[in-house]
Design a protein around this nucleic acid. Structure first.
Lengths: 370, 370
DNA sequence: GTGAAAGCGCTAACAG
DNA sequence: CTGTTAGCGCTTTCAC
């Protein structure tokens, strides 16, 4: 035996195991009503915060429910209200990325931080391909398991919003302002990247490269465009860019590719921390020192970022608050209210040890002080 | 407007938004039955894999359901069968740990890989304290939102199994064989740690320290005991141990503490990779080279492990398979079947660059070859 | 084999 | 303001 089936215990009630022994009827709203000496609807009203029940009756009802440890059955409630009181999140990620990506756990925690206050549940589904993702949404909709979904990793020319609309499944889009029709909720990645570029420019860097995420994602594009735009803004020549896929392996590969150039960059901005850390490793492997010969900037500020060598300069996003805001918005939508204004904390730029003055200047400084 | 409410779209059906416009009745089992020219129960039987429907009728029913894009409504089904057809996972973690911990996403992915094949959903709840955790389970049980739960991070003298039993909520315990009553499902952490100790011993290390996780967790104890036990087994003196909490900050702190000792260890085994990586960083900061002066071993094999400097020697667990096995067992339990035998892949020991021969020997080797 | 009918536990009209 | 009643959509006996 490798698992446990609960047996009757402390509380003196018997586990309602499917083939369980002693029969003990589940307590229902009827029991509470009887005990409080009112009708079922009175109980229902109280538990749905509706007026129409006297203060005195109300007290008795609450008291009875407490004594009986009764809480409305979510399934019955869902059926009669035609609402699942649950939201769905479909996560599509490569297995490798899943366990490193700081986004997903933080986002979920943020979503929960709001949902738990309003009695909604979060139903999760992890899938590994386009077809599986479609089916997941389809099942959510047809089985009416959730009232709405979060749509992550918005893609360029994404068809999913239309598909969800076709399924009648409300959603919030998360991503940076793609501005095609409905507005996604998201943090201002672009601002963070621009800060990064300016930081490097101030340190004297002129050849600033970028290792992007997969080009099909809107956020990859946004970050890339922000990098290119700011370069232009500062009057610098366009930098080299290599498309990668957010994994460490790809980050290392991209770094080698950039450094193989006869006129290699003096700084690289990576689209996430994992690639940046792998990039530092790749650089050092070939004798390129960080930050003396190459400055590196990441994106995310994973908890490990301060603990790699050198500590990683990066852009920090508050994904928890993002999740909270998305949940708030989605609940409003499924309940038919207009979602209130959303304000998210700005991204922060965190300077650590992986960025420094460009080579020539460092030498100049060294000589000056010598 | 920061979010989207789906409007009618391609499929020609109108979104069933709460206050939506055009009325279009949800298709039910009745519609399918009518279209196939049979009774509702016939349809029900087919969709529940029960005998009692002719092959011909069966075909018509399936055909009708396909045309109507009908799938049994999960809420109604849950109510009538008194089963939610969903499993719950309550995650209690410090915010910082949540985003680095490789366990949770992989475990969820593994759970899903099985659940999606049997039509179960996974309901997630993230909480941040003991009281919140209790309430989460209580709600799961009283609201009947899930049929069973996964219990993670087993603690020493854990009261939760008894509480769940009291709530009548079936569960599987995940953890290393604590062997108190019901058996948890888990990977053999201890074997991995023993391998690590032997590896270091073979490299000539005799002062092998351990940085453990919080002592209240069973898995922290198991790893620590395995380390201490193997040391004794090999005839080595007991090593120093520092209790930490799985965070990078704690790992760095613990490392400094160990290295402050007048007779510092030549190798440290950390209870997870995050602490190990932070530990390497801490060591290097104070001029202790890794692996020349200090060998370091982690636990988990996070995707970043090969990309830090030096690449981390660590113990790899297949958490995905673990999740899959737990899900399989829990579904069996809630459906009243005896869970089949569970076999999990053994933990692997991955040797990379953060471990090497102990100092004295390295010098000896160097001199020998000079 | 098949169909009618009684729930599952709650919500929400509608009378009283 | 309170109680009665009819569903929500499906499952599942139980007669036919």
């Amino acid at each position: 035996m490798n698992a446990s089936i609960p047996e009757s215990a402390g509380a003196g009630r018997t586990a309602s195991s499917p083939r369980g022994g002693a029969r003990e009827r589940k307590i229902t709203i009827g029991d509470v009503a009887a005990r409080a000496g009112v009708s079922k609807s009175a109980v229902s009203f109280v538990f749905n915060g509706r007026s129409g029940v006297g203060e005195e009756a109300r007290e008795r009802i609450l008291e009875a429910a407490r004594e009986l440890e009764w809480r409305p059955d979510a399934r019955a409630r869902a059926l009669s209200r035609s609402r699942a009181q649950a939201l769905g999140l479909v996560i599509r990620r490569d297995p490798e990325l899943l366990s490193t990506d700081p986004f997903f756990p933080q986002f979920v925690a943020g979503v929960e931080s709001f949902l738990s206050t309003v009695g909604y549940a979060l139903v999760l589904q992890v899938v590994d391909g386009e077809q599986a993702e479609r089916e997941a949404y389809s099942r959510f909709a047809h089985e009416a398991r959730v009232d709405g979904v979060f749509l992550t990793d918005l893609r360029v020319e994404d068809e999913r919003p239309a598909e969800l609309a076709g399924l009648g499944l409300p959603c919030v889009l998360l991503g940076t302002g793609a501005g095609e029709g409905t507005e996604p909720i998201g943090l201002d990645d672009a601002a963070g990247i621009r800060r990064a570029v300016r930081h490097l420019h101030a340190l004297g860097h002129e050849r600033i490269a970028h290792v992007s995420g997969a080009d099909r994602y809107v956020h990859s594009r946004v970050r890339r465009d922000a990098w290119a735009g700011e370069l232009a803004q500062l009057g610098l020549r366009p930098g080299a860019v290599v498309e990668a896929d957010f994994t460490g392996a790809a980050g290392a590969r991209a770094t080698h590719e950039l450094l193989d150039d006869p006129e290699p960059p003096t700084a690289i901005i990576f689209a996430n921390d994992i690639m940046a850390i792998a990039g530092i490793s790749a650089a050092i492997d070939r004798g390129v020192r960080v930050p003396q010969d190459l400055s590196v900037i990441g994106f995310d500020d994973i908890p490990l970022a301060p603990y790699v060598i050198p500590p990683l300069t990066t852009v920090r996003q508050d994904v928890f608050q993002w999740g909270n805001a998305c949940a708030r918005a989605l609940v409003s939508i499924v309940e038919g209210r207009e979602p209130g204004p959303i304000d998210l904390p700005p991204v922060e730029f965190v300077v650590r040890g992986s960025t420094g003055p460009v080579r020539g200047q460092a030498d100049a400084v060294a000589e000056a002080s010598a």
